[in-house]
Amino acid sequence: MLKVNDLEVSYGAIKALKGITFEVKSGEIVTLIGANGAGKSTTLRTISGLLKAKRGQIFYKGDEITNREPNEIVAMGIVQIPEGRRTFPDLTVRENLELGAWTIKSRKVINDKLEGVYELFPRLKERRGQLAGTLSGGEQQMLAVGRALMAEANLVLLDEPSMGLAPVLVDEIFEVIERINKEGRTILLVEQNAEMALQIANYAYVLEVGNIVFEGEAKTVAQDPKIKAAYLGA
């Protein structure tokens, strides 16, 4: 579904990605794990079109999408849930969700999707008239996920969904990720919480300072002694 080939991205003179190649197969949960500064977020931001690639290509369903504008990429069916949630604080929950459906023109489709999100997160329905900035951290993460689900997207990019959340909420978010995957969406998950990510993922790539240093079935990666020592604290 998504193929990234020899992708290089730099911030000025600093190379954040030094030519990475990976693939996300349709229907899977694929995770990119790695330490701070490994280039995980950079990868997602480049796929979404927020950053420009210096070299290499990105293909989605066979079409090259390298360096397209973010709005075109969303319209093609790739949506990102950004790090730090980034809801629209002075807009209501409902307005936030409806903005998620920006690329959809049919009012009926939007309303159906809205109902779907409310079903998944009843809390958001209760708070639909409330300003997003007044929600708790966990609720805002739900809203960020809900907003992404409003888009007509087959591929969901998640950037550190567990960041800053209480453990019980982390479990809840990972359950939601598994659920939206089962409903047919493909997931590319970036996480520092490698243990949780490897539990739900099918396949994993390990990033270290801009290079992919290890890859394999998530179960195999979780058993690898080097990975265990470096990322799983065992």
């Binding site: 927020l50 973010p70 604080p89 998620g100 920006w102 907003r147």
Partner: peptide
Amino acid sequence: GRALKSIREDEVASELVGVDI
């Protein structure tokens, strides 16, 4: 108007929902 407010609130998030900011 909704697109404009989303830009005011958070430009990156606005781009990520598909608004041509």
